[in-house]
């Protein structure tokens, strides 16, 4: 799944003023009741929101730790904690191998995607050439192509190229998920680097390549981190291609490997939730990492508005 290119910058002030000018002279009263009631409402609302947002993750983790997971029923808190479910994931299942496969695939996707997308981003941000706009529009459109609908031709193509049952084949497909978004995002970062800094490097006699490495690269590094995390999460989470391409159980990635814990009639929920937790935790950590970047971005946006 590819993400949206970018949100439109909200033309806040103009629209807002227009809206403000329009019939707000209401004579309703009772606006200023910043009372205890509203504080209570905020506390209750916050608790309800947190509960709604976190409950599935909570249930996953606590089931994974519950010594009596299968018959947990409606116990909100496990009666006794155990690491046995996690241990079983690695001993009975082959989950260590699945994790390794996923790490290899995700890392390779991140590495290749970073290099390729940065080069392309420099091209569209720094150069003016024929078809530039056409390429930009194409990159935008391409993000909307449902890759799920292309699983059939990509499968047949991978078959011809002997790329089924191969981690490399999966990496290549995942590039299609992450490249358009990465190019589009990095383009913004590259464009934000002032031209003068580059000029200065040339003045000092640096070649283009040298300037690229010593000047441009460090400045767009935050953008690379963001797109890399996105690429990593996409590759780590992806299901449909991993399911279709990998028939050899030694090459399963985590999201497909998880299915091996489902029995025909009985499901080992303790182990399934333990394995799910192992898959989920790194993603949540990454999200919280970029949340800090995000909130600072929000703050600067607010100042600007």
């Amino acid at each position: 799944m590819t993400g949206p290119a970018a949100l439109p910058a909200v033309p806040a002030t103009r629209t807002a003023r227009r809206a403000a000018g329009r019939g707000l002279r209401s004579d309703e009263t009772g606006g200023r009741r910043e009372s205890r009631a509203s504080t209570v409402a905020k506390v209750v609302g916050s608790i309800a929101l947190v509960a709604f947002a976190v409950f599935p993750a909570y249930w996953m983790l606590t089931t994974a730790l519950d010594a009596d997971a299968a018959t947990r029923g409606s116990r909100l808190v496990p009666t006794s904690l155990t690491g046995e479910n996690f241990a079983r994931v690695f001993t009975d299942g082959d989950f260590g191998r699945f994790i390794l496969n996923s790490v290899v695939v995700a890392t390779a996707t991140v590495a290749i995607s970073a290099v390729v997308s940065l080069l392309a981003a420099v091209a569209v941000a720094r150069f003016r050439f024929r078809f530039r706009t056409a390429i930009l529009v194409m990159i935008l459109i391409v993000q909307m192509v449902p890759l799920e609908a292309l699983v059939i031709p990509l499968f047949l193509q991978a078959r011809t190229l002997q790329m089924l049952n191969s981690l490399l084949g999966l990496v290549i497909v995942y590039l299609a998920f992450s490249l358009p978004f990465a190019i589009w995002t990095l383009r913004g970062f590259v464009a934000a680097v002032p031209q003068e800094i580059e000029e200065a490097a040339y003045m000092d006699g640096a070649s283009w390549g040298r300037m690229f490495r010593s000047v441009l690269l460090p400045l767009v590094a935050p953008g690379l981190v963001a797109t890399s995390i996105f690429a990593f999460i996409t590759a780590w989470n992806e299901f449909i291609f991993a399911l279709t391409f990998m028939q050899d159980s030694e090459l399963y990635t985590v999201s497909v490997g998880l299915r091996t814990f489902f029995g025909q009639n009985t499901n080992d929920w303790g182990a399934i939730m333990a394995a799910s937790s192992i898959i989920t935790v790194p993603v949540v950590v990454f999200f919280v990492l970029i949340q800090r970047r995000m909130t600072s971005g929000l703050a600067s946006g607010a100042v600007k508005g």
Partner: peptide, 19 residues
């Protein structure tokens, strides 16, 4: 760009992993 070399090395490793 050294990254390209690194990437192709990685690709070779991956190809070796595939069966």
């Amino acid at each position: 760009i050294t990254g390209v070399a690194a990437v192709s090395a990685l690709a070779l490793t991956l190809a070796a992993c595939s069966s």
